[in-house]
C-alpha cells in the first residue's frame, strides 16, 4: 500500500510540475510582457514603472532562469501578487479554498453514490419503466448547462417556494453559532451541491448502467446463476463490485471537470469559494489570480485522483496483492 501511494504521489508531482510550467508559459505568451500587464493591473503604465517591475521580477534575465525563479517561488508558497486586490495570491486562494473543497467534495460524494445506485437500478430493471425514467432524466441532466440548472433551481425553490436560501454560505448577521450555524450552512449548501452533483450524477449513472449491463453478460454471472442464486444476490455480490471499477477510473479522471464546474456553480450561488474569486478575476482581468486558481484546482484534482485510486484498491483486491 505504501509503495502504491508513493507511486501515485510521484505521478501527482509530475502533473503539478507540468501545470507550473504551463502557467509560466501562459504568462509569457500573453499579449504584452508580464511587466506591462502588471503595470496595467497596478494602474500605472509609465515606462519607468514598467522597467522597475522588469528588474524586480527578473524579467530581463533568460527564460530558463526566470522559470527557475518562478518554480522556487512556488515551492515557497509564493503564487504571485494581485495588484487589483493588493494581496498575495496565495492568501486570496487559501481564504477561498475551504468553501470550494466542501462544495466539490459533497457534490462528488453525492454524484458518485447516487450515480452508482441509480445506474445499477436502471441496469437491473433494463427495459422496464424504472430504467426508461432514469435514462431520460440522466440524458436531460447531462445536456443541461450547469449554471442554468442552478438558476432554475433558485427560481423554483427560493423565489417561488421560498424554501431554501438562494445564495451565500450562511445567513449574514443571523448570529448563529455551533449546531445552529452548521444547520444554516447545510441549508445554504443544498442547492449548490444539488446543482453541481446532478450533472455528474447523470454522468456516473449512465456509466454505471452501461458497465453493469456489460458485467451482467459475463460468464461468471452465468456461473453465479447456475449456483441457484437469487437475482438480488447476484447483483449485490457479483455485478456491483465489478461494475464500479470502470466508473471509479472515469470519476478520477473527470474530477478536474467537476472542480471546473464548481466555478460556475459558485458564481450562480455567490458561494465564497475559488469560483467567485475566478469570476471576479475574469471581470478584472487579474491574471495572477487566474493562474493561481489554475494551480490550486490542479492540486485539488490530484488530491481527488489519489482518493479515487485508493477507492479502486479497496474494491479491486488484485491491485495490491499483485504488487
Amino acid at each position: 500500500m505504501l509503495r502504491f501511494l508513493l507511486n501515485r504521489l510521484a505521478k501527482a508531482a509530475v502533473v503539478l510540475g507540468v501545470v507550473v510550467v504551463l502557467n509560466f508559459l501562459l504568462i509569457h505568451a500573453a499579449p504584452g510582457d508580464p511587466a506591462t500587464v502588471m503595470a496595467g493591473e497596478a494602474g500605472a503604465a509609465d515606462q519607468m514603472f514598467v522597467d522597475q517591475l522588469r528588474k524586480q521580477f527578473g524579467l530581463d534575465r533568460p527564460l530558463h532562469v526566470q522559470l527557475g525563479t518562478y518554480v522556487s517561488h512556488i515551492l515557497q508558497g509564493d503564487l504571485g501578487f494581485s495588484f487589483r486586490q493588493q494581496r498575495p495570491v496565495a492568501d486570496l486562494l487559501l481564504d477561498r479554498l475551504p468553501a470550494t473543497v466542501v462544495l466539490t467534495l459533497s457534490a462528488f460524494t453525492l454524484a458518485l453514490a447516487g450515480g452508482i445506485a441509480l445506474g445499477l437500478l436502471a441496469a437491473v430493471n433494463v427495459g422496464k419503466w424504472a430504467d426508461s425514467a432514469i435514462t431520460v432524466v440522466a440524458l436531460l441532466s447531462y445536456a443541461t448547462p450547469i449554471y442554468w440548472v442552478g438558476l432554475m433551481l433558485v427560481l423554483v425553490f427560493s423565489v417561488n417556494l421560498g424554501w431554501l436560501p438562494a445564495f451565500g454560505y450562511e445567513s449574514i448577521g443571523a448570529g448563529h453559532a455551533g449546531l445552529a450555524r452548521m444547520g444554516d450552512i447545510a441549508r445554504h449548501m443544498i442547492l449548490p451541491v444539488a446543482t453541481l452533483g446532478l450533472f455528474y450524477m447523470a454522468v456516473y449513472t449512465r456509466m454505471t448502467r452501461a458497465s453493469a449491463l456489460e458485467v451482467s453478460s459475463m460468464d461468471f454471472v452465468k456461473t453465479a446463476r447456475a449456483k441457484g442464486q437469487s437475482e438480488w444476490r447476484i447483483v449485490t455480490r457479483h455485478v456491483l463490485r465489478n461494475a464500479i471499477l470502470p466508473v471509479l477510473t472515469v470519476a478520477g479522471v473527470q474530477a478536474g471537470q467537476l472542480i471546473g464546474g464548481s466555478i460556475l456553480v459558485e458564481t450562480v450561488f455567490a458561494w465564497p469559494g475559488l469560483g467567485r474569486l475566478t469570476f471576479d478575476a475574469v471581470l478584472q482581468r487579474d491574471y495572477q489570480v487566474l493562474l493561481g486558481v489554475f494551480f490550486v484546482t490542479s492540486v485539488l484534482v490530484v488530491a481527488f485522483n489519489i482518493v479515487t485510486d485508493v477507492l479502486y484498491v479497496l474494491v479491486d483486491p488484485r491491485v495490491e496483492i499483485a504488487k
Binding site: D219, K222, T223, A224, R318
Partner: peptide, 18 residues
C-alpha cells in the same frame, strides 16, 4: 447448483475476478 450443476467452456472468465 444443488441437484443439477453446470460447468462452462471458458474457465478464464467463469469465475468472479474480485
Amino acid at each position: 447448483g444443488h441437484r443439477i450443476a453446470m460447468i462452462f467452456q471458458e474457465p478464464m472468465t467463469a469465475l468472479n475476478p474480485l
